[in-house]
Design a protein around this nucleic acid. Structure first.
Length: 901
RNA sequence: GGACCUUUAGCUCAGUUGGUUAGAGCGUUUCCUUGACAUGGAAGAGGUCACUGGUUCGAGUCCAGUAAGGUCCACCA
């Protein structure tokens, strides 16, 4: 067996094992009726994406769940893939074309889409490679892509089905238009931002009463040429006599427009009068409909003003047009006033430009299964972690609006609707809707629009498993793996993706069957958002995100994984600190070296199975430390089990960290050093170490897969070359039963004794340090102890002397003039050859006496409170009494010591 | 306007159903290159648990309110 080197070198180990895992097809998710299934579908990253810290967290957690499921003996399947990301990808390719001074229109639709495919084959999906570096144990043979021919067909199938079921319609309505990407967007793709703008006060002259004006306030004077009315509230006395009259449009083509009354106008806001521009505002559009007003669209798709805006404005960009319009108003005297103003403006999430409300023909979806989607979460068929996100989810579903699913892009799933050539497109009689298209294509023209990207990814949990093709479903194990077990994602896509997947699953999967068979997943774990030190969201544009690959190079994939999980408590945003990643690396090194110590301590016994190790235990040689470490091992195993049940990953990591570093390395390994000296205790001690290390490696493996696989092999746990990940992890209950079968019942009293010994050692070390003897190993200790305490101490003298760093420890009836400390196992004296600094010693003891006296007083006060004594539970009461007795004894001893000085 | 979250050590955070002297990591101070590990060991310093009130024998923990910071939804020109 290879020797364990002095420090852990992650790079080679990671490459070696990842290749070995792939080679062995260790990540393959197979249908196995003998085992419980466990499945996760990856939230497909954009095909243009590169690994961010958010991906690191998200995918580490998925890998943790998947690997843990494997260890628990389930058949685990993690399905990877990417999303074609319509706008994002098209933009990337267009940007490349622009470098060659070309646009997509120079190529035409077909050629351009070919270009995107070329890009995707060359540069797309880098992120999947990067996930391998992180150790992700995806079933790569199942890698899916939302534009794969098979997947695309499923997307179109869903469109056709929803159309047939009456959920999809075409209509001319106000949409959020992105003048940069030249496409409609869904409401979810618009983000509101506060903007510093100008509020212009503009007066409109009454046509019939020159010299009389109506004033309105607007932030968008460039749309005045599109005004078709002025609206006031019907009950507003200021305007009562004006309703029905006409005013002159102050700029743009000359026209007289009516003053109308509509209760949508807020009397309190601005001047109380509202200019109505139906083409460029949602509320105005609705008012326009009610009053049968014409629509004058003064903007081109790209946001420049058109001829309808009048000669002076035509051709200008909307922002330049705004300035120009203000100038024109000022020149004509129509601009009464302008003031600085802060208002909220909708921005395109992707292109980061203000969106325009725009009247266009689009395809809309009336969401299916809305009520059932609510019930699925409300009734607990799907559980959200943390639970509070279910409120956000339900609130959105309560107020759900139809989904604009068409996009004016070329990269995406082209909507499977054909229009009869030359016929009226608004008449559904002239439509052909099918996956494969009409039989006589020469007579038809296909719809130009493609589907919103989310209108393909909402099918992810079942379309990736072969749905609806029965043969494919069988091959992919649909019946076995659906519903998937857990979804790990960010709360920022709860509407975009999570809610929609639930509705899609309920609508399409296993119709007629109970809800729990149709939902796409049972648990949803929402990660926090990773922020930088200043609390800002990490983003590419801010450049405040470290490159995960650099972190892997510096700290190892395991270090990064361990670190990121440890700082990600459930449901809270995460403030990223690189030093936590460093401590992840340090932990790996600690693990490595503890195993190295084990290897150097003696020949490996039979480590091939848990049973073999347990057989090597010798109950007759067990002392308190042995009982205590196994107890802590069981407690930790149990705690990790709880953490997985409750999705508390950082708590699991912390429990393992504390157990391994403090309980095992700092205490057990140290006491082992004397046990290993003695031939009669050595074999049992080694067996215990083997047992603890084995279980610890298994518990840690989901978090730090590479190093644990390496150590598993180096310490001889790999039975016939098997991987750690194909080993069955024993539960706390199972492990305890196995120990008991070997005659090992953990002894509570002995375990409690170890706690006293730990305190004793700590106090003894402190005593040495107080007297500047921390590094001396030749000091002598004396102790005054009762028989019981001395028995505990005497049984462990060799260990204690080693732990404390002393030459010896003797029992005495009386000691004088030496510095002392009161421990749970008696009063410990430091035997100083030189004279003691009595003054310093007095100060130290006095300080301690003061502290203990305070506690005594507090405990006495509690116990003298009649209400406490009569109402507190007996256990609490007894605890308080015991505490008081201990405190009083300690105080008395301190007083005695002080007196002696 | 509506909803939610956060506030505990210098920093980042734990703190399960209320119950001993409120914890961890990092940082910091002192000592230690002793045969697993200096990516380490030992000992220490550091907290009126944001504030006010209430419930209770007992509150960091439960309730009400206040303040500050953050997130989401809606949005009035």
């Amino acid at each position: 067996m290879a020797e364990i080197t002095k420090s852990y070198e992650a790079r080679d180990v990671e490459q070696k094992w990842y290749a070995a895992w792939l080679q062995a097809k260790a990540f393959r998710g197979t249908v196995d009726p003998q085992r419980e299934p466990y499945s996760i579908v990856i939230p497909p990253p954009n095909v243009t994406g590169v690994l961010t810290m958010g991906h690191v967290l998200n995918n580490t957690l998925q890998d943790v769940l998947i690997r843990r499921a494997r260890l628990e003996g389930r058949s685990a399947m993690w399905l990877p893939g990417t999303d074609h990301a319509g706008i994002a990808t098209q933009t990337v390719v267009e940007r490349e074309l622009r470098k060659q001074k070309k646009t997509r229109h120079d190529f035409g639709r077909e050629k351009f889409v070919e270009k995107v495919w070329e890009w995707r084959h060359e540069k797309g999906g880098i992120i999947l490679e990067q996930l391998r570096r992180l150790g992700a144990s995806c079933d790569w043979d199942r890698t899916a892509f939302t534009m794969d021919p098979a997947y695309s067909k499923r997307v179109l199938h869903v469109f056709v089905e929803l159309f047939k079921r009456g959920h999809i319609y075409r209509g001319k309505r106000m949409v959020n238009w992105c003048p940069a990407s030249l496409t409609a967007l869904s409401d979810e793709e618009v983000i509101m931002k506060p903007v510093n703008s100008t509020l212009y006060r503009v007066r409109y002259e009454l046509a019939s009463q020159p010299g009389r004006f109506v004033e309105v306030k607007t932030t968008r004077p460039e749309t005045i040429p599109g005004d078709v009315a002025i609206a006031v509230h019907p009950d507003d006395p200021r305007f009562a006599d004006m309703i029905g009259q006409k005013v002159r449009r102050p700029i743009g083509p000359a026209a007289d427009i009516p003053i109308i009354a509509d209760s949508a106008v807020d009397k309190e806001f601005g001047s109380g009068a509202l200019k109505i521009t139906p083409a460029h505002d949602k509320v105005d559009y609705e008012i326009g409909l009610r009053h049968k007003l014409p629509v004058i669209d003064v903007l081109e798709a790209n946001g420049t003003l058109n001829a309808l805006a009048g000669d002076e404005l035509a051709g200008l960009d909307r922002f330049a047009g705004r300035k120009k319009a203000a100038e024109l108003l000022r020149a004509s005297g129509a601009l009464v006033d302008e003031e600085a103003y802060s208002n909220n403006v909708g921005y395109s999430e992707r292109a980061d430009v203000p969106i325009e409300p725009r009247l266009t023909e689009q395809w809309w979806l009336r969401y299916p299964k809305v009520e059932e989607a609510k019930a699925a979460v409300r009734d607990g068929h799907i559980k959200f972690h943390p639970e509070r996100w279910s409120k956000v989810y339900l609130h959105w579903l309560e107020n759900i609006q139809d989904w604009c699913i068409s996009r004016q892009l070329w990269w995406g799933h082209r909507i499977p609707v054909w229009y009869r050539k030359g016929a009226d497109r608004s008449d559904p009689q002239n439509w052909h809707v099918s996956v494969d298209g009409p039989a006589d294509p020469q007579n038809w023209e296909q719809e130009n629009d493609v589907l919103d990207t989310w209108a393909s990814s909402w099918l992810w949990p079942f379309a990736t498993l072969g749905w609806p093709d029965e043969g494919e479903m069988k091959q992919q194990g649909f019946d076995y793996f659906y519903p998937t077990s857990t979804l790990v994602t960010g709360p920022d896509i709860i509407f975009f993706w999570v809610a929609r997947m639930i509705m899609a699953g309920l609508e399409f999967v296993r119709p007629g069957e109970p809800i729990e068979r149709r939902i796409p997943f049972r648990d949803v774990y929402f990660t926090g958002i990773i922020r930088d030190q200043q609390g800002r969201k990490m983003s590419k544009s801010l450049g405040n995100s470290p490159d995960p690959l650099d972190l892997i190079a510096t700290y190892g994939a395991d270090g990064l994984r361990f670190g990121i999980v440890s700082i990600a408590p459930q449901g809270q945003d995460i403030r990223f600190q690189e030093d936590r990643i460093e401590s992840g690396k340090n932990f790996c090194n600690k693990l490595w070296n503890a195993c190295r110590f084990r290897q150097m301590s003696g020949e490996a016994g039979d480590n091939s199975t848990l049973g073999a190790i347990i057989t090597r235990l010798d109950p007759s040689r067990f002392d308190g430390d042995d009982h205590a470490i196994l107890d802590r091992l069981l407690v930790t195993t149990k705690e990790v089990e709880r953490c997985f049940r409750e999705f508390e990953f950082s708590a699991a990591v912390q429990a393992l960290y504390g157990f391994f570093w403090n309980d095992f390395c700092d205490w057990y390994v140290e006491v082992s050093k004397s046990k290993l000296q003695a031939p009669e205790t050595k074999p049992n001690c080694l067996a215990i170490q083997d047992l603890v290390l084995r279980q610890t490696l298994l518990l840690l493996h989901p978090f730090v897969p590479f190093i644990t696989e390496e150590l598993w092999s180096l310490l001889g746990y790999a039975n016939q070359g098997g991987f750690i990940q194909t080993t069955r992890l024993e539960t706390a209950a199972g492990l305890q039963a196995a120990l008991e079968a070997r005659g090992l019942v953990l002894d509570r009293a002995l375990i409690a004794g170890v706690e006293s010994l730990k305190t004793f050692v700590s106090q003894a070390r402190a005593l040495k340090a107080e007297h500047n003897l921390a590094s001396r190993r030749d000091v002598q200790f004396q102790v005054i102890a009762n028989d019981a305490a001395w028995a505990t101490l005497d049984a462990s003298t060799a260990k204690l002397i080693r732990m404390v760093g002393a030459a010896g420890m003797a029992r005495r009836d009386k000691v004088e003039g030496a510095p002392a400390v009161v421990t749970p196992l008696g009063t410990l004296y430091l035997d100083l050859a030189s004279t003691v600094d009595v003054g310093a010693e007095k100060i130290r003891l006095t300080k301690e006496l003061e502290a203990i006296s305070k506690h005594v007083a507090a405990t006495e006060a509690r116990l003298s409170n009649e209400a406490f004594v009569s109402k507190a539970p007996p256990a609490v009461l007894a605890g308080a009494r015991k505490q008081l007795a201990d405190q009083q004894a300690k105080r008395a001893e301190l007083e005695r010591l002080l007196k002696a000085l």
